[in-house]
Nucleic acid binder design. Structure first.
Lengths: 347, 347
DNA sequence: GAAACTCCTGCAATCGATTGCATTGATCTC
DNA sequence: GAGATCAATGCAATCGATTGCAGGAGTTTC
């Protein structure tokens, strides 16, 4: 039990097939360089011995781990978990493993470095916008380059490869929808901003408000952290307002759900008394009551494309010195949580 | 750019500190065996060269990857993603990385094997109850043992280590709650069963129904696959019934949500017309409308304990030949989706 | 029939860290 | 003061797969 039967090595296969280890290796990696007879003999031996390659040895020799690391703020978040799912699938079809890490400790540079400056992973998929780009450059080290693809909410450093959706435009589109429905008093529940710099969705919100010359009030914009709890807090805030907006654009679905639930406890029904539009289109959105109007982000696409891009870079398919930039579109999905202002009032 | 500066090796550090590589290695792994003066000199050299250990080499030499593999049916599922979060945290504090895989291809044995029969991972955390135990034994191979901890819904093979909640008892408790609320006509939306063997929650449901001598009808039990969509399908089914149960026990929250949403579309309101209790207490449960009554599973605990158990086994802290079995409790959380039958009818 | 090729296969070095054994110098014991 | 003991360090083999180089067998060419 405590001494698992030793795994067969390439040497064992070689002995079994009466060839050298080199030949076995060649059968496995470039079969066309080996004669048909030998190839078949070796293939049989591989099967009969139950040989599986020792990745550690391979990694050491080739200096490539065939593994990518993904850093996410919180996998518990359904938004990210769907992306991760897509990443894993895409990586698997290319023969790559996926290591996952969250936010650990206070010094991102150190633990990120620990991971694959040490040959555990070949590259990084970054879904955490709160990791500062300076930090990343530090991880990359002065001379070397850290193969990296970023895929988060913010427009990242133009220097680094990225797969993103156009958040600014999508936010404008969300507000536009509320405007189209007749709303003129529009509030916002924003996500966190890093470096005191407003995030893209907040900027888009402000831009739309400005362009439509709508009323802009400080107490109509509250900031949350993308959790349902912070949505609840925002809900309390809006419920307590004397002069309340008739519609709210929430920077993600979870905060929208938290806000709707809390507002309801205060007797404020959505969409009867207030319209709320979310962002992301997470799974529950369509099954929530009311079903959420939201800006759908193509999460599977984000995950898949990000993973493929990174692997292409790793395998040298991308010689292009210019950073890769992929911008995906979000779609407006109209459901029940927003209503025309006239219709809602009369409802 | 395309040629990252070569990472310093232990040899480089040794040269820098004027000692042998062996000494550097000892400073890193068993500092007490090295004199204070040397130790400090080496520690400085490590810092100055920016050395990080090459895990591939270490893994090859030690035959241990310091990495665990988790297999989940779908990370997109919020239930599992919370568990995964806990696993990653627990593993990280023990210095372990976490590889994640989903269901890939049709032959689990092959891809599971590819992972860590090949020294990529030292052990497996299995959250996927649909992987047959025979398959697992096959992966383990005849002689050797695959370090494995299972943590899924079903009571697994008593031979293997497991961290579970008592699903049968929890299911009974859920039905008991409906019974206490005066319901006598109780339906069930079940999860999938493997091997034509009913799953624990279904057994618990049947047991409770039997013991209370309640009506048991085939068309009051529909089976789903734990997705919201299958919950919607179940909702349609129940909506179409002439003689409908007054309460439903859903084997997870997502199916409960799907069912509630669909029933509402048919004019059947929860809890006014029908009470529904879920299972798991996923994040949205408390923010759903109605807030879900559910059996809360301690997901963080499951993830953390499973990871710690596996690592203990890997590090030989567990010499015990008997399989480890941890059984956690689920708690009934009463919210709005269930109502006393009198109260509901009059509401 | 010999030079020039091609094709197939093996030899041996290499990747970087670890560790049993050997060595050195110092301290201790009687 | 000679032998024993011990602490600190170095030597060199090892983990398993890959690959440049070389050699042997067979084929082609003139």
């Amino acid at each position: 039990m405590e001494n698992p039967k030793k795994m067969p090595t390439i040497q064992d296969v070689a002995r079994h097939a009466n060839v050298s280890a080199a030949t076995v290796s060649r059968v496995l990696s470039s079969p066309e360089r080996v004669s048909k007879a030998t190839r078949e003999r070796v293939t049989n031996s591989v099967r009969e011995t139950g040989y599986t390659i020792n990745q550690a040895a391979r990694t050491l020799r080739l200096q490539r781990a065939k593994t990518i690391l993904t850093a996410m703020p919180g996998i518990g978040n359904p938004f990210y978990s769907t992306i991760l799912d897509a990443v894993i699938k895409a990586a698997a079809t290319r023969g790559y493993g996926v290591l996952v890490t969250g936010r650990l400790g206070d010094d991102p540079a150190r633990w990120l470095g620990d991971y694959f400056l040490s040959n555990r992973a070949d590259g990084l998929l970054l879904f955490d916008g709160l990791l500062d780009t300076r930090t990343l450059h530090a991880v990359a080290g002065d001379g070397g380059t850290l193969p990296l693809v970023a895929a988060y909410d913010e427009l990242p450093d133009p220097q680094i490869n990225s797969v993103i959706t156009d958040n600014l435009q999508a936010a404008e589109r969300a507000v536009q929808h509320l405007y189209d429905y007749g709303h003129r008093k529009i509030g916002h529940i924003s996500g966190p901003s890093r470096n005191t710099f407003p995030n893209e969705r907040l900027i888009g919100f402000r831009k739309a408000i400005f362009e439509h010359r709508l009323e802009s009030r400080d107490d109509w914009v509250v900031s949350g952290d993308y959790t349902m709890d912070s949505g609840r807090a925002a809900g309390h805030h809006f419920a307590g307002l004397k002069d309340r907006p008739t519609a709210i654009f929430s920077a993600n679905d979870e905060m929208a759900i938290g806000a709707i639930a809390t507002l309801r406890q205060h007797g404020i029904e959505c969409p009867r008394d207030i319209s709320i539009i979310g962002f992301d289109d997470i799974n529950v959105a369509q099954n929530y009551a009311p079903a959420l109007t939201t800006m759908r982000q193509p999460r599977e696409d984000i995950g898949r494309i990000a993973a493929e891009t990174l692997i292409n870079i790793l395998e040298g398919h991308v010689i292009n010195p210019a950073p890769v930039r992929v911008v995906l579109q979000s779609d407006l999905v109209i459901r029940e949580s927003t209503a025309r202002i006239g219709a809602a009032r009369s409802g």
